[in-house]
């Protein structure tokens, strides 16, 4: 993968690539360079006594990855089809984490012109983990801040 910031041919200014995903209908994006892997449904081992956001652990080619349920993390209702959850693997402080989301979409190259700061009315919990958003055709894409998503779990623990 090349640099995340490119000069677009359309001269729309600097752009960034995002892996997009949806959680309970809401679109989220993570900068492409932060994503290590995208996995289909996995066998996840429950970890008793773990924080509620932690779904469990899974084995990714010999590495043990901690699975974080994004619905739980975003305080959204539980998924109707938890067994179909897709996993986006990211690295945080040298440890791999897998974010369980409903669906993983395509990689989008988005121009900085489409970018906006967090709206003031955004829920406080969401505001902490959102790094701004992009105006797409017909929807909004929230940029996830990995450190905020995962760091808080540790802080609570």
């Amino acid at each position: 993968m090349n640099a995340a910031t490119n000069k677009d041919a359309d001269n729309n200014g600097p752009t960034q690539d995002f892996v997009t995903m949806t959680v309970a209908g809401q679109a989220f994006g993570i900068p492409v360079l932060h994503v290590r892997d995208v996995l289909g449904p996995q066998r996840i081992t429950r970890v008793p006594l773990a924080p509620p956001e932690i779904e469990g652990s899974l084995n990714l080619r010999g590495r043990i990855v901690t699975a974080v349920n994004m619905r739980q993390r975003l305080q959204l209702p539980k998924s109707d089809f938890p067994e179909k959850a897709m996993a986006v693997v990211v690295e945080y402080e040298d440890e791999p984490y897998s974010l369980l989301v409903d669906e993983v979409g395509e990689v989008l190259r988005l121009s900085d012109r489409q970018r906006d700061t967090n709206p003031a009315t955004l829920d406080a919990k969401w505001r902490q983990i959102a790094d701004g958003l992009y105006r797409l055709d017909g929807s909004l894409l929230i940029v996830l801040n990995i450190a905020a998503v995962l760091g808080a779990i540790r802080a609570e623990a």
Partner: peptide
């Protein structure tokens, strides 16, 4: 293998491991 930082506070576990069948257990 050391448990993930998010799980390290649980004193009942000392770590994690992967079994021969590939599953992760505490």
């Amino acid at each position: 293998k050391p448990a993930s930082r998010t799980l390290r506070h649980i004193s009942l576990f000392s770590g994690t491991t992967i079994l021969g069948d590939g599953s992760v257990i505490m």
